[in-house]
């Protein structure tokens, strides 16, 4: 069983479009959406939810004002600027509990909150595990880990060959949780100054955690010069460029129709993505 994660550093480079295609192309797989903040893959794959689980990832401090003696100890010990004028700001509170520990009159309690949900679903192409973090919540890394654990169990029990993961943008905790244990990270970039800058940073992250990375350049023809720079950089750093994908408005059209690009099999972009998948398959089976 091999685990592949699709990440990008910069957002909006085409991770989910590629994932939608891989869901069609890969055989005997389980599809996972680990962009739990802003998951979009379900908009293409239309999962039928079979199981819904609560995610109790974090706690928040609750103040009982009737007990509060306004001593200010809580504010003094809070390192997140979450307490001001004897009021707790739930958006700033990270649920550490320091305030509850120092409160001399037990006016503060920590309560567990439901910070999101995760789902086990069926798609036309097999099983899918995905999630939705609650709005303005934290601990997305923990939710990613919960989703991945479930996916792994399902994959093992059903003897799947592939776990294919849509990762979040950026390089913080949900990204680190997403790439953990992956056999390969596919980094989707675009030929812009931001794309190349963010790709370099996320490559440092995969390198830091010892995950093998390959790169693909989406919309490579919008600036061929920068695409060349990306290829040169990858070449110099021994990173495989798994392929290049042309810019084509058909990609957005497919998304608007709620379809994977592979459902337009004769399009040039579909063939380009197919080649990328075949290369990844080969690369991991070697």
């Amino acid at each position: 069983m091999k685990q592949i994660v699709v990440i990008s550093g910069k957002g909006g480079t085409g991770k989910t479009t590629l994932m939608g295609a891989f869901a069609e192309l890969a055989k005997n797989k389980i599809i996972v959406d680990c962009d739990v903040d802003a998951p979009d893959l379900h908009l293409i794959l239309n999962p039928k939810i079979k199981e819904t689980h609560e995610f109790k990832g974090s706690k928040e401090a609750i103040l009982d004002e009737s007990k509060c003696i306004k001593c200010g100890k809580c504010e003094e010990n809070c390192r997140f600027e979450a307490i001001k004028n004897f009021k707790i700001n739930p958006f700033k509170c990270e649920g550490c509990g320091a305030c509850a520990i120092v409160c001399p009159v037990n006016a503060i309690t920590l309560s567990e909150k439901i910070a999101g949900y995760w789902f086990v679903s069926d798609i036309r192409l097999g099983p899918m595990v995905h999630a939705q973090l609650g709005i303005a919540e934290e601990n997305s890394g923990k939710l990613v880990t919960a989703v991945k654990e479930k996916a792994r169990t399902l994959a093992e029990n059903n003897k799947k060959d592939w776990i294919i993961i849509d990762g979040p943008p950026g390089l913080g905790c949900p990204v680190i949780a997403s790439i953990n244990g992956a056999d390969l990270a596919l980094i989707v970039t675009e030929p812009t100054m931001s794309g190349i800058h963010d790709m370099k940073r996320v490559l440092k992250v995969t390198n830091h955690f010892g995950v093998t990375a390959v790169v693909c350049i989406n919309k490579y023809d919008i600036n061929p010069e920068i695409s060349e720079q990306i290829e040169k950089y990858c070449d110099e750093n021994n990173i495989d460029v798994a392929g290049k994908i042309s810019f084509d408005p058909i990609v957005t059209k497919a998304m608007v129709n709620g379809k994977s690009i592979i459902e337009y099999p004769d399009e040039k972009v579909s063939l380009e993505i197919k080649k990328i998948w075949e290369r990844i398959e080969r690369c991991l089976n070697e």
Binding site: D37, A136, E137, S140
Partner: peptide, 9 residues
């Protein structure tokens, strides 16, 4: 940053 979780808040 993108998203809707703690860094954005």
């Amino acid at each position: 940053s993108p998203g809707v979780s703690c860094p954005v808040v």
